[in-house]
Amino acid sequence: MRIIAGRHRGRKLVAPAGTATRPTSDRVRQALFDMLWHAPWAGRSAVDGAVVLDAFAGTGALGLEALSRGAERATFLETDAAALRALRANIAICREGERCTVLPTDAARPPRAAKACTLVFLDPPYGEGLLETSLRALSASGWVAPGALVCAETPAGPDEAAPPPGFTLLAERAHGPARVLFMRPEGGGA
């Protein structure tokens, strides 16, 4: 696993052993960011200068990729001890400590946000129905800015294919066992 593009391009990231953490593959991350940069509802401005939330962060690959491509800051939410060690190691590998905040907390029960995020990544464990629960909790706690772009990875099956209530689906793409949903909060502007 490595950073795909930007100023940290090619940096190798570490992942914890075992199956508790399921890092987003390089291929899916590349496709996700290509779509962000080229979609009419996003563009480079969706990443450049963004305040990023990487919820269910695992290794932090999504948030670190965004920083590499021009995001301003990133906050990572993660509870697994092994994933937190890998996440902190990856932040150090990329020398991004000053622009990162790591909160060892559950994205489905987050603390109040210090600043709303304009680009939100969610990669909850598959099959646990956490996409809707966490998006509702993150929104209620002030993490999701009006007009924010939300990118969520779900299983490719139909179980979690619809956007949660309060969010408008902009696009979706299947990549092997994963599906990426791109959404905005309803009534939040563009």
Rank of each mutant, 00 (worst) to 15 (best):
G166Q: 04
A86S: 15
L122R: 11
C151W: 09
P163M: 07
E172Q: 14
A31W: 08
A86G: 04
P40S: 09
R95I: 04
G142F: 05
W143F: 06
A42R: 06
A55I: 05
A39E: 11
R9I: 12
E96H: 09
W143C: 02
A156V: 13
R2E: 06
R22C: 10
A15R: 12
A82M: 05
A55M: 04
L169Q: 05
R69L: 07
E132T: 13
A46D: 05
V180P: 01
A148E: 02
T168L: 10
R44T: 02
P40K: 13
G187T: 06
A178N: 12
P165K: 08
S25W: 06
A156S: 13
P40G: 06
Q30Y: 09
A113I: 05
F56N: 06
K12F: 04
R69H: 09
P104W: 13
A55V: 08
A50Q: 09
E186F: 11
G187S: 02
H175C: 14
A57C: 11
E160V: 13
P164A: 11
V150G: 10
A114Q: 14
T154E: 03
L13P: 07
V102N: 09
P23T: 13
A161Q: 13
S141V: 00
H8A: 15
S45Y: 07
S141I: 04
H38T: 14
P185I: 11
R11P: 05
E128T: 09
T19G: 15
L181C: 00
A174V: 15
A20Q: 10
A82E: 09
I93H: 00
C151D: 08
G142Q: 07
A116V: 00
G10R: 10
G70F: 04
D80M: 05
A116Q: 08
E98A: 11
D123K: 00
G70Q: 07
G18N: 13
G49Y: 03
D80I: 09
T168D: 10
R109C: 14
Q30E: 15
L131D: 08
L169N: 11
P164F: 06
E160I: 01
R88D: 14
E78G: 11
L67I: 06
